[in-house]
Amino acid sequence: MSRLKEVLEAGVFAVTGEIGPPKGVTVGTALEEAEEMASHVVAINVTDLQSAVMRVSSLAMCKLLLERGIEPVLQLTCRDRNRLALQAELLGAAVFGIKNALLLTGDHMVLGDHPEARPVFDLDSVQLLKAASELKAGRDLSGHELDGTPDLFIGAVATPEFEPLELHLIKMRKKVEAGAQFFQTQAVYDGDRFKQFADAVSGWGVPILAGIVLLKSAGMARYMNQNVAGVSVPQELIDEMAATPKEKRREKSAEIALRIVEQIRPYCAGVHIMPLGWADVAAEVAKQINQKTRQEVESRIQKLQSELDDLKARIPAHSASPDMLLQQEKLEKQIERLRALMPK
């Protein structure tokens, strides 16, 4: 089973990371970034030709992560493949032992380094989620039976600051109905707006991983405000980065990220950190987030242990009722599970 799925189902605050494959076959740097984050995150996303720039495939990098004992999240976009290739890629991922897939539309070709390429978009993100759900149910998108079914934890993307939010919620609901088991969001910088978004989806029963993009400079923040739909970096954060000397930017970036996480933590199931090359900063941010998570999990274990001790004290030495024995077993398994899922 996907460890990411286990962590989210157990209600343990999850932290995931991300790497971008290289443009070429020299994969060492990307793997080093993944290994730097690995001990502090539950899983690592591998982007799929991000920004429509030609790179090594997400599937290949996910396989390399698996070989190193790192749980990957395959990203798969609709832009470059028809429904045959998309389904084949998901089956191939399952054959390799990849357990997580984030399914998304993908940036248009005009944004990338091959603007003359022909986009496919045979399916949209909702239809791709439906196709993945069909594969998990043992049949392809045309209804033909599979010889063996994939075990995939499938996610979708969301944009908390999309305007109008009501329209975005309609598409998100369609994604849930199509089989989305978790959401990963676009970058979050405004805690109040994220709370509004989280309140709107709070009854859906689908965990949300809030996107945390590490700010590297004031210029980067201004660029995102002008060019990245659904992302809005508040002016006070831009001013904060502008006033920070270059040699202090990594420290300031981590500080801002942790501040945002603290604001939104009550309203999400975890965070997805996008390092943009700053894997060391992402690892430090994840490490500090996990310190609080360990405290939360320890508190839950203590409460369960107290219930277990009380139950054991009430169980008769002879002729214990089946219900009491079942309750004891349940509490013991819950404690064992939380200990196993506690972040390092």
Rank of each mutant, 00 (worst) to 15 (best):
K5P: 03
E6A: 15
A10V: 10
T16A: 09
G20H: 15
P21C: 10
T29I: 13
T29Q: 14
L31W: 02
L31K: 01
E32Q: 15
S39D: 14
S57Y: 01
M61C: 05
K63G: 08
L64Y: 09
R68Y: 06
L74T: 05
L76K: 04
A85K: 11
G92T: 06
F96I: 08
L102T: 03
L104P: 00
G106H: 01
D107E: 13
D107Q: 08
M109A: 15
V110N: 13
P115Y: 08
P115T: 10
F121Q: 00
D122A: 07
K130C: 04
A137V: 11
A137H: 11
D140H: 07
L141S: 12
H144T: 14
H144A: 15
E145G: 09
L146S: 11
L152A: 02
V157G: 05
L167S: 10
H168R: 00
R173A: 11
K174D: 02
A178I: 02
Q181S: 08
F182W: 14
F183V: 01
D190A: 09
G191E: 10
R193C: 05
R193D: 12
F194P: 01
G203A: 10
V206L: 03
P207E: 01
I208P: 04
I208G: 01
S217R: 05
S217W: 04
G219H: 08
G219M: 07
G219I: 06
N227C: 08
V228F: 06
S232Q: 10
E240N: 11
K246H: 14
E247A: 12
E247G: 03
K252M: 13
A257R: 08
L258R: 12
Q263L: 12
H272W: 06
P275L: 12
G277Q: 08
D280T: 14
I289E: 03
I289M: 07
N290S: 11
K292E: 14
V297L: 04
E298M: 10
D309P: 01
L311K: 02
H318I: 12
L325D: 02
L326V: 09
L331S: 02
E332D: 09
K333W: 06
K333S: 14
R337G: 05
L338I: 03
A340F: 03
K344D: 13
